[in-house]
Design a binder for these strands. Structure first.
Length: 328
DNA sequence: AAGGGTATCAACCGCTCGTAT
DNA sequence: AATACGAGCGGTTGATACCCT
């Protein structure tokens, strides 16, 4: 539907000429070439001078969310999903801020992921996606599952995937960048995709245009399996020291959690949120995730893993939560 | 095969913030 | 200090692909 928007209410001819809706290949090419020779920014000027009949805003959005060479396409990796869950628990709907820590991913993409995948689960459970209850579900069900997926992929693919699962004790150098109370979480991170040349970008575009109806990811150079760069994650300035901290604004809640999970929060602070502890066998008393009333984990291999939880298991978790002495 | 429902994602909109004048 | 303007952000919408009956 490439529409020339001729608004009846528009007073100026210029407004009437403005295009809206999906971008065409010609428009994309025009924008790419203009930016290649003039650089980014001054979007309104760009819109006027480039010959595009688009608003500056529209040009900016198209460039940042789609055309920019380092934009990564394709499904979010488990590492990226895990990071989104973690960062959202800390920052809420600060999509652009979260996106800064996922190289190549746009705020729009992360926002869409949250709304379509995460909030959907909350709706199924009939709970508020911003509630602590739901964050418990994320922490006790979703995150461990992602971690197991990460572990699984790291043990099976040694070449393309650089997912690292490093015990805190082995990650000393990295953790020294942080205060003792706030060692970094050890999560995998994707390296930034090397910038594509203009020609490569255009080639990708043309390739995408041809294949757009058949698959999500059409550019091997963009969709290549990638992992996360631990040092980047560790540099997140005010990363939560634990899921407890990330979720809780009140000491009361920490106290309740201690009681419920039979976990010493201060101990947890020392142990921190890292793959080694989170994926440890259940029963490890220093592992709050392991102490969650987690269901048996045949769900790890479920085909639902990429987007949906096993609702039966969620309900089981939910019932356990409701039977607990405290909580929400 | 057709129709309806659902999921996904690109794009738009309105608002806020920062900066220049 | 006030104002204007551009850039950016988060929320929402609409098109379309996909799935199920």
């Amino acid at each position: 539907m490439s529409t020339l928007s001729k608004s009846a209410s528009s007073s100026s001819e210029e407004d009437a000429e403005l295009r809206r809706g999906p971008w065409t290949l010609e428009e994309d090419t025009l924008l790419i070439h203009y930016i290649a020779s003039h650089g980014e920014g001054r979007w309104n000027l760009l819109a006027k001078c480039s010959g595009l009949r688009r608003t500056g805003k529209s040009c900016r959005l198209r460039w940042l969310n789609y055309l920019k060479p380092d934009v990564k396409r394709g499904n979010l990796t488990p590492q990226e999903q895990l990071l989104i869950l973690e960062l959202h628990s800390k920052w809420g709907n600060r999509w652009s801020k979260i996106a800064q820590h996922l190289p190549g991913r746009t705020d729009n993409e992360i926002k869409n992921y949250w709304r379509t995948r995460v909030q959907k689960q909350a709706r199924h459970l009939k709970i508020d996606s911003n509630s602590r209850a739901f964050q418990d579900v994320i922490r006790c069900v979703w995150m461990p599952r992602l971690l197991q997926k990460i572990e699984g992929s790291s043990s099976t693919s040694s070449t393309t995937s650089q997912v690292s699962i490093i015990p805190q004790s082995l990650n000393h150098a990295d953790s020294q960048q942080h205060s003792a109370a706030a060692p970094p979480p050890v999560v995998a991170q994707a390296p930034v995709q090397g910038p594509l040349s203009i020609n490569e970008t255009i080639n990708n575009l043309e390739h995408n245009e041809k294949n757009s109806s058949s698959e999500n990811c059409t550019s091997p150079s963009i969709c290549s399996s990638e992992s996360m760069n631990i040092s980047q994650i560790s540099q997140i300035p005010d990363y939560p020291t634990s899921p407890f901290q990330a979720m809780s604004n009140s000491d009361d809640y920490s106290t309740l959690l201690k009681g419920y999970y039979n976990v010493d929060n201060s101990n947890y602070e020392m142990e921190t949120f890292n793959l080694a502890s989170m994926s440890a066998p259940q029963g490890d008393f220093e592992n709050p995730v392991g102490d969650c009333p987690m269901v048996e984990s045949n769900w790890v291999d479920s085909d639902l893993a990429d987007s949906l939880w096993n609702m039966d298991e969620l309900w089981q978790f939910w019932k356990l939560q409701e039977g607990a002495p405290r909580l929400f």
